[in-house]
Design a protein around this nucleic acid. Structure first.
Lengths: 349, 349
DNA sequence: TTGAAAGCGCTACCAC
DNA sequence: GTGGTAGCGCTTTCAA
């Protein structure tokens, strides 16, 4: 009696737990509307090539609404062989205001170009493993804050159908379109500025928080590099983003004997500046302070905070770059000027 | 001669543009390794139920690596009938520090539970259209900063296979697990605090930026509500996040005759406080100022900024809540205490 | 104007 | 141990 155990699809369980109704498919819609699945597809996608009578259209739409039908993106992607998803891995650290704004603009601009931007939370995976995870989604384009992907990873992504891979960071990666954004240059600019202002014993703040090395490393290295071979000296200062840590650093300030500090960014600068002022250290007389990122808060501090402004590409420009690359991957990307870091001198240095 | 025009799959074009090599599939791997697709699948997924000889495993892995094979997530999802994607629509405004931190924690925690968190940039779509767009991805769970989805939207998501829909906002939505986070309560707390401090002519800052109404509306309404029927009076103050806008507001401050202001959040409070101080208005003597969100910068201002702290759920708690809901959607969610708003009084009020 | 059916890439059941 | 194969939901050619 081989038929006895056959499970009838969609049959309600004889008793008990409320069987979760299966997700309606286009076949269900077709059945309810009394048409074929093809017709359903035509109607719901407003296929221009085919003429469907108005009554039929209405019946189909009505049935779809009645069932709460929603097409299955995976099935569509599979069938179509491509998607319009632009993937952007999330940063390993909470986004700052600068990056949040950038992502927001980029997303908005790409939405208007009819792409879907997806921020993919891939914490835990590193390097090429991460790239493989992204590639599984078959995005049409990928924007990676580099470092975070190597040439291998780029190759995997492209072989998986990505029409373009754009990196946003200090180093160009083989095979990817690089938007050069050199954090070392921020450090260089800050250090050079402080040197030009006559300072010689220069502290560089390095956030104690994990995951920030990606940015803080280059900023420190750049500072070192700018002062190499001069009579100035760089001291690395670890600082956590807490008042306690800042107070502790301020307490040992006299012993450090510094006359200037590059505070990683404006937020750390604000934190440190306040702690120094509370400890009786005068800014800029005793110590010059410079931040980075040109956040609003720097303009609101007293003394006004000098900062290094880093020119991010506008979200809209980058969106159109991605769009062009998707439409003609063949086009040779014109090499890109690195985004410059410029010092905005105010009153703290 | 019907065969003449047949296109041979994968045949290189006789001349011309470098044909993008087609994406390798598991069939390609199988062919190269000289095994069946089934075997490839078993090997690459480490299927425990089946024993595959070590040499075969090696051959398969080697072939996969050689081709740069990456499985197709859409196909897998389609076949499996479900995914482990947790979808979170991106906010219509750039995320502030509070939310960035929350999202980061939430993502990290869910990653550790083996979910994939995806922030979906759905700008442009509203309400139930947006919900439909999310549903197309068939996420296993959805976290929506409400408002942003109605009961209809929740129903669509659930019918599309979402095991749970969690809203994070002021109102419970039928069918969804609500984390009540009432911005009106922030306004109420701020206003009540200012009233208790003896202030009666109270300004409430409303950001001029588009898209913020979602938060600013309730905060204003809550302030109004708290003072309704008292002898205090609320004045709505539009303020853009620029120094110019703040200076303009400060310039007409005397005419406004206010003795207190709830400045929407700490960032706007900082901006306004600076402008007021520059215009010779004393804080808190002439005007009491209170912000919200309890950001670090409030503690660094002088006078220290009073603020309304809003207790967000921890990312980890929320992640485990989602995980439990996914595993047993039947479980009746214990009703949740709204997250409270508590006033942190410092020196500005 | 509508329907039948192939096939996108993958996994899991069953047979060998 | 390994292979054949059905079928997930969808779109689109071809036939009727």
């Amino acid at each position: 009696m081989p038929y006895v155990m056959v499970q009838i699809p969609n049959a309600p369980a004889p008793t008990m737990p409320p069987v979760p109704r299966p997700v309606p498919t286009s076949a269900d819609v077709a059945r309810l509307a009394g048409v074929s699945r093809a017709t359903v597809s035509y109607v719901l996608n407003n296929a221009g090539a085919v003429r469907i009578s108005e009554p039929t259209r209405r019946r189909v739409r009505q049935a779809a609404k009645e069932l709460g039908y929603v097409p299955h993106a995976a099935a569509r992607t599979l069938r179509a062989g491509h998607s319009r998803m632009v993937l952007m891995p999330t940063l390993p650290v909470p986004a700052g205001p600068l990056y949040s704004q950038f992502v927001h603009d980029f997303q908005g601009a790409l939405s208007r170009l009819d792409y879907t931007v997806v921020q993919y939370g891939a914490t835990g995976l590193r390097g090429d493993d991460a790239a493989r995870a992204w590639a599984e989604l078959r995005p049409v384009a990928v924007l990676v804050p580099s470092p975070g992907v190597g040439p291998e990873g780029v190759a995997v992504l492209k072989r998986s159908g990505a029409r373009t891979v754009v990196t946003l960071g200090p180093e160009a990666v083989e095979g990817a379109r690089a938007l050069l954004l050199d954090h070392a240059d921020v450090g260089r600019s800050a250090a050079a500025h402080l040197y030009a202002r006559g300072r010689r014993r220069i502290g560089v703040v390095v956030p104690a928080e994990r995951g920030m090395e990606m940015f803080s490393g280059p900023r420190l290295a750049g500072s070192r590099e700018a002062l190499h071979g001069t009579d100035a000296h760089v001291t690395e200062l670890s600082l956590a983003y807490t008042e306690e840590s800042a107070a502790a650093l301020a307490a040992r300030w006299p012993a450090l004997g510094l006359d200037a500090v590059f505070a990683y960014n404006d937020e750390y600068a604000m934190l440190l500046m306040r702690a120094l002022q509370d400890a009786g250290v005068r800014v800029p007389e005793d110590v010059a302070v410079i931040g980075a990122d040109d956040l609003m808060l720097g303009r609101l501090l007293r003394p006004r905070l000098s900062t290094v402004r880093i020119a991010l590409p506008s979200g809209r420009d980058l969106a159109s770059l991605v769009d062009r690359a998707v439409r003609s991957p063949a086009a040779v990307p014109e090499p890109h000027e690195p985004f410059g870091a410029t010092v905005v001198q105010r009153d703290s240095s």
